[in-house]
Design a binder for these strands. Structure first.
Lengths: 321, 321
DNA sequence: GTCACTTACGTTACGGGTAACTTAGCGCTT
DNA sequence: AAGCGCTAAGTTACCCGTAACGTAAGTGAC
């Protein structure tokens, strides 16, 4: 007991005793068993469950980096769950991770299976839903409005004078943020008198190569496409490489627009038209909200970190009005 | 107790009782507290601590993806630690994560602080050191021989006829795999009668933009450089973009060689000369070794997953002998 | 009817840390 | 010298799941 007091620096022991305890700690290489503390119910754990769809997508890797760096600095640990974009994986991961008594959960996306929702509600721990901004979250939410970001890009491309526009992305069983962006995009294009000549949703990862062959497929079936909007910058870059390999000049022959503004963008000779999203900050904000809640500080429970359109030079300039 | 037996499907209860238990489980939304089980010492936990330097580097994101996907499928959870390439961060993370009684640890790199080594030895749990192949690991190891991979690239560039070769990478307080690669590279170049005109180690992340401005710096001080070897593909790509922006043609005016063979490589119009490393497989192998050990299956304790030189077309072809 | 055995379920104890309480010893006051 | 307040240290009980053991019925053989 006295040793426990010394290790927690609780006071109520003499300097003499403290030294004796520390000596034995060193001699034995003693490490406290935090499981016992949490188990006894005296404090909550320092685990934060973090679910992420996949790490092949650089965007999510950055979000996770933002989360874990912030959590780590404040004495918490991320327990990772890669859900592969499926609600079943997420549900089974939630069940497991909750049995380890985490202090809180950070989940990517706003869709959860019914059983997952029940468990989350019963868990009685802080939950931050990230990525999709959600004004009526389970508990807390931080993200951006994907519909609006797609809509703004669609309107921008219309304003640039494009009318026959294609979309290349990936599809999953569940509606996700990318689906929402696409919906916003389609609405803006159609409102603006344009036409989405093709919505290509590949069953693949949202990375470079699918962007490359997706563009090949799209142009094969809709050769008159003037501009293509991609699910993210990696796919857009793959697409731009395909176009160049076929001798199509960007933006003279075809416009290319990405989403996410990846770290690769600043080095490209032509700046990619894209949507900048503060990924790292998004992750950090999620971690901060979580920790504020765990420290019983007041927290705004919805935060929109916003996006910013990068005009770039891979679509043609706005025509002089 | 009967409820415990039902939930573990241990047998020794009637169907009638089982149904009654399950009914209450549903009614109460009961989730078992795995902490208690582990705490009682009956089983080990299903946490695996995973330390990763950073996730901004796509290579490590892929390794982590390989690890977590495999662990997740087999019922284990990754507890993440981003060490930011420092031994101090790693040590403090190890101390914390060990207090949670993980079933095992997967650590990136072979260097650990003295105190970390003591803790790791005392922990009595399986440890896999990844990334650097290590024939005398703490416990188990899977990775590649970075010295050899640098050496092979150096020899290849010499064989291509290059003599004045530059290196652009990043530096950290501690020697790491990249340092080892550079050493192998320098040895091969000097053995082959070439000269490493400049070894530029930036205090920055190993990503696109540092590759871009590092190349600018290198060429400003050593204008006669014939070829540049980069710490990784992202930096090499940034470098190639710098060269192109200055009108330098690749490989006619300057050779570019990367390392790691990132997913971006297949879409580039000119295949990047690089070193292919099976990142995902490396992660999966680490997870498999861990789980085999935890299941008391026999495990080879050192695995070299190997690398493969991608000749590419960003360095000039071998001259006809 | 007795014994051996099985099935179904109950009871006790334990793990490691700590909250809450108790005790021992000391110095100071009156 | 008794009484009080304080500090330092010890004791007990608890958290929850399960191993190990106990027990009460039921079954079948002889």
């Amino acid at each position: 007991m006295t040793a426990s007091r010394v290790l927690r620096e609780e006071g109520g022991y003499s300097e003499d005793t403290r030294l004796k305890v520390m000596e034995q700690v060193d001699r034995l290489g003693y490490l406290p068993n935090r499981l016992a503390t949490v188990f006894a119910g005296d404090t909550s754990s320092t685990f934060i469950g973090v679910s992420i769809p996949d790490l092949g997508n650089e965007v999510f890797a950055q979000v996770l980096e933002g989360i874990d760096r912030k959590l780590g600095r404040l004495g918490y640990q991320s327990v990772l769950g890669l859900t592969q974009h499926t609600l079943e994986e997420e549900e089974s991961w939630i069940r497991t991770v909750l049995s380890w008594q985490p202090a809180g959960l950070i989940l990517t996306g706003r869709n959860h299976s019914k059983k997952a929702m029940d468990m989350l509600r019963n868990a009685g721990i802080p939950i931050v839903e990230i990525w999709d901004f959600n004004s009526s979250p389970l508990d807390m939410s931080v993200g951006i409005n994907h519909f609006d970001s797609g809509f703004d890009m669609g309107r921008y491309l219309i304003n640039c004078g494009y009318r026959k526009i294609g979309y290349v992305g990936t599809s999953h069983n569940t509606a996700n943020a990318a689906t929402t962006r696409m919906a916003g995009f389609v609405e803006a294009v159609e409102n603006g008198g344009g036409e989405v000549v093709k919505q290509l949703c590949l069953h693949d990862t949202a990375t470079y190569y699918p962007g490359f062959y997706g563009t090949e497929q799209l142009l094969a079936s809709s050769g008159d496409t003037e501009c293509i909007f991609y699910q993210n910058d990696a796919m857009a870059f793959g697409g731009s490489q395909y176009c160049q390999s076929k001798g199509l000049r960007i933006p003279e022959h075809i416009g290319i627009a990405g989403w996410g503004d990846l770290p690769i963008a600043p080095v490209l000779t032509s700046r990619m038209t894209s949507m900048h999203v503060p990924h790292l900050k998004l992750g950090q904000t999620a971690a901060e909200m979580m920790i504020a809640r765990l420290s019983n500080e007041p927290v705004e429970n919805c935060k929109d970190v916003g996006f910013r359109l990068i005009p770039g030079s891979t679509v043609r300039r706005l025509p002089e009005a």
